[in-house]
Design a protein around this nucleic acid. Sequence first.
DNA 1: ATAGACATTCTTTTT
DNA 2: GAATGTCTAT
Length: 719
Amino acid sequence: MNLLNGLNEPQLAAVTLPPQHALILAGAGSGKTRVLTTRIAWLISTSQARPPTVLAVTFTNTAAKEMLARLSAMLPINVKGMWIGTFHGLCNRMLRAHYRDAGLPQLFQILDSADQLAAVKRLLKSLNVDDEKYPPRELCWFINAQKEAGLRSAAVEAWDDWTKKRVELYAAYEAQCQKEGVVDFAELLLRCYELLERNEPLRRHYQERFKLILVDEFQDTNKLQYRWLKLLAGEGAALFCVGDDDQSIYAFRGADVGNMRDFEREFKVQNLIRLEQNYRSHGNILDAANAIIENNPSRLGKNLWTEAGAGEPIRVHESYSDGDEARFIVEEVKALARDGHARKEIALLYRSNAQSRALEHALFNAGLPYRVYGGLRFFERAEIKHALAYLRLIANENDDTAFARVVNFPARGIGARSIEQLADAAKTQGSSLHGAIPYVTGAGGAKLATFAALIVKLREAAHLPLPELVEHVLDLSGLREHYRNEKEGQERLANLDELVNAAAGFVAEDGVVGEEGELSLDLASFLAHASLEAGEHQAGEGDDALQLMTVHSAKGLEFNIVFICGLEEGLFPHENSLNENKGLEEERRLMYVAVTRARQRLYLCHAQTRMLHGQMRYNLPSRFIEEIPAGLLKFLTARANKSGYAVPTYANEAPVFDSAPRPQKSGGLRIGQNVMHAKFGLGVIVNAEGGGNDARVQINFGNAGMKWLALSVAKLEPV
DNA sequence: ATAGACATTCTTTTT
DNA sequence: GAATGTCTAT
């Protein structure tokens, strides 16, 4: 059978397993997605499974789409009957189908993390809670963590007064969401889990339907997701989980690698298959990745190998500043392009989104086309969120988050005082903000009534086809008008037009079809789509553009050439992670993911200085570079230049000291200078004060931390 | 009530 | 250096 052509032995074994529970430990680049999709295709084409019995779940929309695309290329029959999507997407689908049983309004809305934060802030304000003591961000994090552990507020055990209060606020937040008919991301999962748990007939129904359950990136599942899978997998179902413990990089949001062990034990998994042959990277790259990850204790154990040759050495480049780093990359990319490398096969990876700015700046100036993934996404832009808020009010006028967002945008004279009155009225009436409008008197009340009339008017258009409805909303709400008058509004107007296009191009998932005469269900599913899929597709998708993204969003992707930028202590590994439990190990796995994205060539870049929070930071090279055997590396710049500074590489570069803070003399040492200390090792001078016998310098010793040392006492060797 | 100036905080990663 | 929050002059 040609489906199976070209599979190696373990891959073949995994694909053709009979429908039983199986755990596949799939190393980076070992053909994981191929195994997953080929297995579905094989079981269907050999009549061991029918499409409607298949449920495949991934973490990202990109991965889901990829799987769907590959499947429809492999299978002549349609793939419509299968449920393929993200955890959140599938839960949303189930909740829409059984909204009554789930205790939700038919057109319930989804809060993305920004909406959730806004909702929490609103809650704290209405309860007069001190947001110094209960920071909204922290509270969101707390609530989500509880939900991800499967705990409702009533089930949380408070271990101190502070937490006791946080649990109370969690309860109030639950009530607020329920009243408004909205759910946040974690709620989608928890609500769906509870639905299946409590409703036996429904659970039976799905258990009898889904016989083949496949999970991608299993190492990234959290406790709740695992329990959800357990509920769904009934008698006779086969759970096929693919994962790699070395690529677990989402522990910070509740992912639990322990699920792999638990799955093996609880399902008595007989089929454990390791995919260790790597088809992606050249030997040197793989050796480096293996060397790095070996520093992590407590791995399930796995070593990648390849038949490909060693390939090129890994290039290490040190620059003086982040700007220099960006310019180096630009020059290098230009040279690569001249040699015939496609730009879209070159990726620039970084630890945090903020780093993209310097890179984008240099790329833009050089006229190199590039595409940034993540960052500000389409559906997260302010003007789009405003437009969506109006649409949400059409679907559900009790959506207070949406209401608060646009009640006075564009400005219609409803200020803080009116809103305050309205919130009070809502509280005494036990109603939503919208429901409280009749209870506000005076001038503010009149203006609010006008706004209510606007919503009624918009709602009258709800039967229109989606794109026309969006058009209607943009005009009637005054959003178009507002941005037309704003001087920087051109781009925003264009985005609003793009929203109309998105609505026109939107095809509702099957199973969620609008019915005649009913408040448009298309609208509800379009809004869900906007929340769940924040608009990954940007303009210029097909272009030959450089690919910029965080290491997190690069997981699952591969490129011929990869630059890992900002490989510095404090940045990668990130300083915040060092205080966290197992934080460094997660950072190291992140580095492992980054390195294994590259097929042919890998650059590791670091800079001595970098702007952060608007001030200069001096960083040591990342320990991860040192964890790679020196034999695999090729240093493009002299290491730890004796002068303490790398020589600026480019002619048009302004003299180093003009842009940098003037190096301060203190005992012959300067800021930015590398020094060696007998006890603390290598460090960088980051600050100095005093003079003469009093002179003290602050030194970043990386591992050993930041120290103030008196020059008269400390023995420092300039390096 | 609003716009604009000013100050403060933040950034790790995402569905 | 942005994005939010607070204050001040209209």
